[in-house]
């Protein structure tokens, strides 16, 4: 590169930097004080609905991570039934179990950030699986990400 062109490029680089120094946009979401509203159909931690379940075991069979296990549960007045339980520790959020369940007994929640003090605590037997992962213990400010031509991603409070 000849010298004058190089000088021009130096100046351009500096000006671009300066432009962003004064420009508005910022990409940061102040998680966990702010959290994104997730789009419809987001593949969060799956949740179980016992009433709908037909005990077909398909979810346990398709799970690629062996996260779902069938548990035998005594139901009052009826004979023993098999219901799925999940180990969130292993789950990879592929959503196969939800998509294959013929009865619609599994559904996605929008929770993806449940943390726990022990590994055992992440194993959810059918009854706990039915409650789903506990919601956040605090209320973050919710923001909705919107794609935007000017700043790329805009986080609209919602």
């Amino acid at each position: 590169m000849e010298l004058p062109k190089r000088v021009v490029h130096h100046i351009e680089a500096l000006l671009t930097g300066a432009k962003y120094l004064v420009a508005k946009p910022r990409m940061t979401v102040m998680y966990p004080e702010e959290a994104q509203i997730l789009p419809e159909g987001y593949r969060g931690m799956p949740k179980f609905n016992r009433e709908k379940c037909r005990s077909c075991s398909l979810c346990a069979r398709i799970c690629p991570a062996n996260a779902i296990k069938m548990y035998t549960v005594e139901v009052e007045g009826e004979k023993k039934k098999k219901y799925p339980g999940i180990n969130y520790n292993r789950c990879i959020f592929c959503g196969f179990c939800v998509d294959i369940c013929p009865a619609g007994a599994l559904e996605f929640t929008d929770i993806h950030d449940y943390a726990s003090y022990s590994l055992e605590d992440l194993v959810f037997k059918p009854d706990r699986f039915a409650e789903g992962p506990p919601p956040r213990p605090f209320k973050p400010k919710l923001v909705k990400p919107m794609l935007d031509e000017e700043v790329g991603l805009k986080y609209v409070p919602g």
Partner: peptide
Amino acid sequence: EAAEKALRYLERRLKDYEKLFFENPVTV
């Protein structure tokens, strides 16, 4: 619509990348 917005944004941004990084004499 969302995709179109995203693409327009990225197109514009690539020009800034060019000035700040791709054509930055040090990078070159």
